[in-house]
Simulated assay, not measured.
Amino acid sequence: MKSLTKAEEQIMQIIWQKERCLVRDIVEALETPIPQTTVSSVVRILERKGFVGHKAYGKTYEYFPLVAKHDFTKSSIKAWINNYFDGSPKHLVSFLVSENELNLKELDTLMKQLETLKKDKK
């Protein structure tokens, strides 16, 4: 899956949240104001990359996601783990534990989820 720039991802997050929207809806949802022409350019780039589709109502375009947020997240996390943790989820978890980003309760919850997955695969 293609990667997104920070601006593209920011706009994509809004499109995923709204599911169907106009450029002005995206502009209104942005925390930091960006000119409508810039947002429109980014949306067209997202469309060329295959992330967004549109339906035309005269000169007005309604945009919608073509890539599910879950699919993009899955692909991005896999790439991130490959780039920063040698492709090892174990290294990622170890890093999170050593940096105190995961506490014992959260680790226990993860372990229970893993046990459930293990049972389901049998």
Rank of each mutant, 00 (worst) to 15 (best):
K6E: 15
K6I: 08
A7T: 08
A7P: 01
E8W: 04
E8R: 04
Q10Y: 02
M12Q: 04
Q13W: 03
Q13R: 14
I15K: 00
W16T: 14
W16Y: 14
Q17F: 02
R20W: 00
C21A: 12
C21S: 06
L22G: 00
V23W: 00
R24V: 11
D25G: 00
D25H: 01
V27S: 07
A29Q: 11
A29W: 06
L30K: 00
L30N: 01
L30Q: 00
L30M: 04
E31G: 15
T32C: 08
P33Y: 10
P35N: 09
T37H: 11
T37V: 13
T38S: 13
T38Y: 04
V39G: 02
S40R: 05
S41A: 09
V42A: 06
R44V: 11
I45E: 14
I45K: 13
I45Y: 05
E47K: 09
K49Q: 08
G50Q: 11
G50N: 12
H54A: 04
H54T: 01
K55N: 02
K55T: 04
A56M: 11
Y57P: 00
G58T: 09
Y61L: 15
E62L: 15
E62Q: 07
E62C: 08
Y63L: 01
P65I: 01
P65N: 11
L66A: 13
L66D: 09
K69S: 05
K69W: 04
K69I: 06
K69Q: 11
K69M: 10
D71P: 00
D71Y: 08
D71S: 14
F72T: 02
T73K: 07
T73M: 10
T73I: 05
K74N: 08
K74F: 05
S75V: 03
S75P: 01
S76T: 10
S76Q: 12
S76G: 03
I77C: 05
A79Q: 10
A79P: 03
W80G: 14
I81Y: 07
N82K: 12
N83V: 09
Y84M: 08
F85R: 14
F85K: 08
D86H: 12
S88L: 13
S88H: 12
K90Y: 02
